[in-house]
Nucleic acid binder design. Structure first.
Lengths: 137, 137
DNA sequence: GGTAACCCCAGGGGAAAACCGGTATTAGCC
DNA sequence: GGCTAATACCGGTTTTCCCCTGGGGTTACC
C-alpha cells in the first residue's frame, strides 16, 4: 500500500498527542524526528479536519479534539491525502476505471474503516512493552 | 486509494483484449485514448508478467494468456506497481507505520484478492447495457 | 509589552511517474 | 526473397507531485 511520509508523520503526531494528552509542535517534532516546519503544516490539516485543537500563545500546543476511540484511521489518511483525492481531476473517468477504483476503495474502506486510534495505541504499547528497547512513542 | 494512470491504462488494455479476443497495441491505443508508446511499455510488463501473449509481424497483436476467470486484478495491479513495492526502500520504518501499513495491506488483499477479470467485464457490460449511451468498452 | 507559541501564504528542489524516439526483431504476404 | 506491419527493447526527456523551507501575521501568557 505504501503510505506517504506526510501520512506517517501525521499518524505519529496524533499518537504522540494522544499519549501525552497535550504537546506543542516543537516538542513533537523533536521527539519524533520530524521537520518542525513541515509538521506544523501537517498538524494544521489535522486541525482543520477536526482531529486536534490548537491553543496559541506561550504554553500553547495541541490536544485531541475527541477521544481516541472516535478517531478513525482511514479518515485521518484521507485528510492527509493532499486534497484533490476522490478524483476531482476533471478526467472523463471511463467505466472500467470507475469500477475498479470504486471496488478497491469500497472494500478498503469497509476493511480499514473500523480501525481507530486507540487500537493503534494499544498495539503499539503492547509491542513496546515486549521489546523493552528504545523509546519510540 | 487512487490508482496510478499506468495501472488504469493496463486494466483498460486488458479489458479491451479480453473483450475482443485479439487486438494490436495500435488499435487499443486509439480506441482507449492511451498514448501508444506508453501503452506498448505497459503491455510489455503485462506480457512479462504472464497475462498476455504477443505475436509479431503483420496481423500481429495481443491475446490473453489465460481465461479471464483466472486473471486476478490484484496481481495485475501489483505487476504494474513499478517493482520496489512492499517497502524495499531500506527505511527504518517505525512501529506505527508498520502497524498501519500491514493492517491496510492485509485487509486490502483479503478484500480485493478474489476480484477477477471476468467479474470486472461482467459489471462493465451490465452498466453499459443500462446506460445505453456511447460506446466505451 | 515582550515573547512563545500557533497560523497562513508562497514557493524550490528532487525524485518518480508519464511519455517519446530510434532501432532491432519477427512474421505474414506478394 | 524482399516488403511491410507489427512486437520487443533501450535510453532519454518532460511533467507532475511530494517533501521541505522561509517569512511574516496573530494570539495569549507573564
Amino acid at each position: 500500500m505504501r503510505l506517504t511520509t506526510k501520512a506517517r508523520y501525521g499518524l505519529r503526531a496524533l499518537c504522540h498527542v494522544a499519549h501525552r494528552g497535550y504537546a506543542s509542535a516543537q516538542v513533537i517534532a523533536e521527539h519524533q524526528a520530524i521537520p518542525s516546519r513541515y509538521l506544523e503544516e501537517i498538524i494544521g490539516e489535522l486541525r482543520r479536519a477536526g482531529f486536534v485543537i490548537g491553543k496559541r500563545g506561550p504554553r500553547g500546543g495541541y490536544r485531541l479534539a475527541k477521544p481516541p476511540g472516535e478517531i478513525v484511521i482511514s479518515d485521518v489518511l484521507r485528510a492527509l491525502s493532499t486534497a484533490a483525492s476522490t478524483n476531482s481531476t476533471g478526467e472523463p473517468q471511463d467505466e472500467i476505471t470507475a469500477l475498479v477504483e470504486r471496488s478497491v476503495d469500497d472494500r478498503l474502506q469497509a476493511a480499514v474503516g473500523n480501525l481507530k486510534l486507540d487500537q493503534l495505541l494499544g498495539e503499539a504499547r503492547e509491542r513496546h512493552r515486549r521489546s523493552a528497547a528504545n523509546y519510540v512513542i
